[in-house]
């Protein structure tokens, strides 16, 4: 595979990765022997994690607070590097591309691996400008193209009907659930391959949560989704695969159905049935 598809702005086509031929197997992301240290003297936040994440499936990370699920998620788009003392060992490949290769263009990687945070974080701009943000960063000037992508992204995020009449009003005044769907639309607008969801519904009311879950079902037809959640029922409802992490270790990883109905490890069973965590 051509390295430049991820690493190169020099290719000029930022979305080229979507157009290339798909490999035979269905694995998109591979992690091998991951160790993550936030501070040199500290204990590793992630210990020896290896997993394969399948294309166009929803993979859920579950586990008690502080077990490293968010840290693992943030490894996939290198968001951990925002804190300067962070250090990673091991390898992560997305479609055979080592994303920790020094030659990788981080901005390009993050465009390919979108992320939605726990707290809705729309920018203090208009709804339209929020969705168009990624495109403007890429230097897109074609107004018609931006209009069309904004519209399709908002539709894909099931928000178009609610905001189509007030695209130019500020995004800050939307409700929490709307804000979160706006943020998803913003992530979709740059046409990533993977969407990382970091507890996307934990700050929302039940109805908004339901809408987000429905959205995830829709989105997985086109995107590979990795979701971190505290909510067991949610993990069971939305995901195809589930990974249970505990104290930075991957305890069990498999089909969601298997994990929830016949977990192989006692620890997993205890957690799922609510005996601790």
């Amino acid at each position: 595979m051509n390295k430049k598809t991820i690493s190169g702005r020099e290719t000029g086509k930022s979305n080229s990765i979507n157009n290339i031929e798909k490999p035979e197997n269905n694995t998109l992301i591979t992690a091998e022997g991951l160790y993550l240290y936030y501070d040199n003297n500290e204990e590793a936040a992630l210990k020896n994690i290896s997993m394969k994440i399948e294309k166009q499936k929803v993979t859920a990370f579950i586990g008690p607070s502080g077990c490293g699920k968010s840290s693992l998620l943030r490894c996939f788009n290198r968001m951990n590097e925002l804190s300067s003392t962070c250090r990673l060992e091991g390898k992560i490949h997305i479609q055979d591309q080592d994303i920790y290769d020094p030659e990788v263009n981080i901005a390009e990687l993050r465009r390919n691996v979108g992320m939605v945070f726990q707290k809705p974080n729309p920018f203090p701009k208009s709804i339209y400008e929020n969705v168009a943000y990624g495109l403007r960063i890429q230097g897109e000037k074609d107004k018609d193209k931006i209009n069309q992508i904004v519209k399709s992204s908002l539709k894909a995020a099931a928000l178009w009907g609610e905001v189509k009449d007030r695209l130019n009003s500020t995004a800050i005044n939307l409700s929490g659930g709307q804000q979160q769907r706006l943020v998803i639309a913003r992530a979709i607008a740059v046409q990533p391959q993977v969407i990382l969801l970091d507890e996307p519904a934990s700050a929302l009311d039940p109805i908004s949560t339901l809408k987000i879950e429905e959205l995830i079902h829709e989105l997985k037809k086109q995107y590979t989704i990795v979701i971190v959640t505290h909510n067991m029922q949610q993990a069971a409802r939305v995901s195809d695969y589930a990974a249970f992490l505990y104290l930075g270790k991957l305890v069990e990883f498999g089909k969601t159905n298997d994990i929830f109905t016949k977990p192989r490890k006692k620890m997993t069973e205890d957690y799922i049935t609510g005996r601790y965590g």
């Binding site: 925002l82 979108g114 992320m115 974080n121 203090p124 943000y133 990624g134 960063i137 992530a187």
Partner: peptide
Amino acid sequence: IPRHLPEGSMALGAT
């Protein structure tokens, strides 16, 4: 500035 705003921007590929 809430930390999640610049993070959101960086997550979209902004430098």
